Simulated assay, not measured.
Amino acid sequence: MMKPVLNTDRFSFAALALAALAFGAGLPATSALAGECPADQVAEDGMTPGPMTPKGVTDTVIKTIDLSSKGDAWKGSMLRMRKLVVQPGGIVPWHSHETRPANIVVVSGSITEYSSTCKVPILHKKGEVTAEFGHLSHWWKNNGKVPTVLYSSDILSPEMHDDNAM
């Protein structure tokens, strides 16, 4: 009689899927739609440039991955993950995502985004994720009373490796 063989690939996928579901269960049900610009407020030049220097924010690089092994199109590019802690009144300065796509998750607190693509400020709360890419420039401010913790994952092109912009 043959013993059943554990398919580790299938087991790993199932474990990963369960972990993702468990993580997602802790997020607000409205997170997919929250923290977005209202449809009637979307504009090409919604907000003018804001502060150009950071204030009350720590930016810690957690890990980077050199993407060069993925082919010529990725030569010199890096995937970077950072933790940002923005104190009350703190500012993540005006910056562009034209050449640096990113995803941001709010882990605690809340933060307000002032975006070139929206006429009104956008409040991002704990558990919300926002995608930043394309023709977008913006700045963020913690208008709350507690520090806001964000995790950011972005792709840096070769010319951005020494760029300290947020």
Rank of each mutant, 00 (worst) to 15 (best):
M47D: 11
K145S: 15
S157D: 05
G35T: 06
C37M: 08
I111M: 10
P28I: 00
V120W: 08
L156A: 06
V129W: 08
D45I: 02
P51Y: 12
P88N: 02
V149T: 15
G127S: 05
L16W: 08
F11C: 03
S108N: 13
L123P: 01
G127T: 04
K125H: 10
F133W: 11
H97A: 06
R80T: 09
G89V: 01
T53Q: 15
A34Q: 12
G24A: 12
G89P: 01
I104E: 14
I104H: 06
I122V: 15
P121G: 02
K83F: 00
D72K: 13
H95M: 05
I155F: 05
A73Q: 09
S77N: 14
S110W: 01
D154S: 06
D59A: 11
K75F: 02
Q41C: 14
E44P: 00
K63R: 15
E128Q: 14
V120Y: 09
W139N: 07
S31M: 14
T99H: 12
A29H: 09
D154K: 03
E98R: 14
S157N: 07
W139P: 07
L79D: 01
C37W: 07
K141Q: 15
A34F: 02
Y114F: 15
I91W: 08
I155C: 08
P28F: 03
A32V: 12
T30Q: 11
T30N: 14
A32H: 13
K55T: 11
K119Y: 03
V149H: 05
I111W: 10
L84S: 04
T8S: 09
T30M: 02
T117H: 08
N164W: 07
G89M: 04
M2D: 07
V5R: 08
W74A: 14
M47S: 13
S108G: 08
K119E: 10
S108W: 03
